[in-house]
Design a protein around this nucleic acid. Structure first.
Lengths: 196, 196, 196, 196
DNA sequence: GATGAATGAGTATTCATTCAT
DNA sequence: GATGAATGAATACTCATTCAT
């Protein structure tokens, strides 16, 4: 069982890499098994269907990120740094992405969308918690926290996942974040470093 | 020529309806020609490929909306009503959508995305112009206008294209819009009516 | 009528060029009419079918070559020069071929074959006549003239239509020609200049 | 593996028969799978494309013939009989051809051509070897052996693959062969029996 | 656990030809 | 003479999935 689980994890990683670099639709089961060096039957022994593979791939990613985020939340870091940590853990690290801008390539819209939705679902409550902590500590001041957090995440995803954003985009985003959360001007300037 | 053009417009409308209701990928060329009652050859007489059809369908939509928006801008309406008009003209009218929530259905992600991108490209400059007008008239006060407008559009698209948004979402969005554009609280309350 | 004939000749030349440079099978009627700047209907006004076009294209070529060959035969030139002239008039001139080796390209096999067959049919009797003249004048000495001429033409076509023949190929061919026609060694050395 | 290979050989034979009797271009993949009683997917499991199938079909033929020819060369037969054997092994046996003159039918030009080219490539060196042997034994006397052999093969293919050759064609060919290889008159008369 | 042969519905695209105007 | 809209049969190829061994 251990062995089987391990094998499955490997397959998931391979599928993940291929889905991202070529797009889910453009990656055939044949491609995957060839890359993995296994037989068709073996693939279907581990996965019910190709779609389920995608689901599991995404689940795997989200899980890892949620875990990291959870650790940050329960740490002793000051609130701004917690936010910084969580937000940066969300963005796909350069090592994970085989190709620049891969996620935004048109053939990846489907996957990108699924990921974003699920990620938002997972991260909004976590970030909300931190914002509440921030309110208690006097950093922020606002109501409807989850709604505000969600909108910030939405804008962040849409704006900064692409490669062609400008310094002005960042400035406006920071301004927006501060005003939306009721923070003092300049409080969230640290975001700039995170995004660049 | 007249004849051919007319026919093409009809085909485009049929394709549009089908792409939206069943999704681009799930609509085969066979489906389209059957619905249109034409032969395969006729379809390819008018369109180079299925993808080109999608491109033209989207172009057609955008064109119409840009036209409407343009008229509103050059009208004598007060600034807030201009914004209201443009924003509401962007959202797909209920008559156009054969099925509730069609655009957000997963099989429509690709089309939805293409539309959103192109629509944003087209609408941001128009809305920016209006905001500038609003600044001159003392309604708003801000810099980086296109960036702010774009972010507002992004949030609006992402939040209100789905069906499951709440009153709180609207409130936060209004708050965000006012703060982002430097408007007085309550100025943009009219948005609520637009979205509901 | 004159006008129509002229038009048809133009179309034939265009078709000829296209068939040779892209291959008969790879040239669609659409390609031809686009190149010629005429409508589909016009094409079918002049040609019954695409295949008939090919037939006429080939006929046109052969006709021209047969005419040239005929003139040479009835001229006052010495026999070896007559042969030289006919053989060299058969080989597609460089100006006619838009692309080097076009006729031998795999997509042209069909056309090449049709041409070769028809050309052989046409040229064998003409050349046979010249060979007979050569016999009467003591240059050659053999029976079964048409068969011999046909074989020589066959080898010539197959060997020299390609681009990768050698000096040795030429030497052997000359040797063969002389022996086949019963000519004295060296008599037909002039062929070398013709082929090179 | 054994199983798969066997199946593939069967499919190749079926394809071979169909390509020859109906022509490569006129044989659709659908035709083949229907004849073979397999599913489309199975066909594409064994062959990458229709063209690759043709390539393999030809490869299979050539291979068989080369093998036979090789055996003959290394046998203890006298040189003339070796040549006879090789040449006759090249010509498609009556059993293989479902239809008289199939190879020369216009729809088969492409295949015929590919076969002829590859066959020539393969057979010329083998026959050259035999001719050299013949020279050593005093049967023949000539230089440029491969060139001569190739030309003889060319003429043989072109003349005798069709059905409408005459006794005179045979006589001229024998004369030509003897002279081209420097053999004594009558030495190669045995060819007549081979061809008829 | 693992294999790989077999499936077959599904899809986009091509192209010669016709014919009413 | 000329047009161009309309046709529809034909075709190669893909790919997720199954299952006996």
């Amino acid at each position: 069982m251990k062995k089987g689980e391990k094998r499955k994890q490997e397959l998931l990683k391979i599928a993940y890499r291929m889905f991202i670099s070529r797009g889910y639709e453009n990656t055939s089961v044949d491609d995957i098994i060839e890359e993995a060096g296994i037989a068709k039957g073996t693939y279907y022994y581990y996965f019910k269907s190709k779609e389920q593979t995608l689901e599991e791939v995404i689940g795997m990613m989200i899980e890892q990120e949620a875990e990291t985020a959870g650790k940050i939340v329960s740490s002793a870091l000051p609130v701004p740094q917690k936010i910084a940590g969580i937000v940066s853990s969300i963005r796909p690290s350069k090592e994970e992405l085989p190709i620049e801008g891969a996620l935004m390539r048109p053939e990846n819209i489907i996957m990108h969308n699924k990921i974003r939705r699920k990620l938002t679902e997972t991260v909004v409550p976590i970030l909300s918690e931190v914002v509440e902590e921030g309110i208690r500590e006097g950093f922020f001041s606002c109501d409807c926290i989850p709604e505000r957090v969600r909108m910030l995440l939405t804008v962040s995803n849409e704006t900064f996942d692409e490669e062609n954003f400008t310094e002005r985009d960042i400035s406006v985003f920071i301004d927006m974040a501060e005003k939306l959360l009721g923070a003092k001007p300049g409080t969230m300037e640290f975001i700039r470093e995170l995004i660049r």
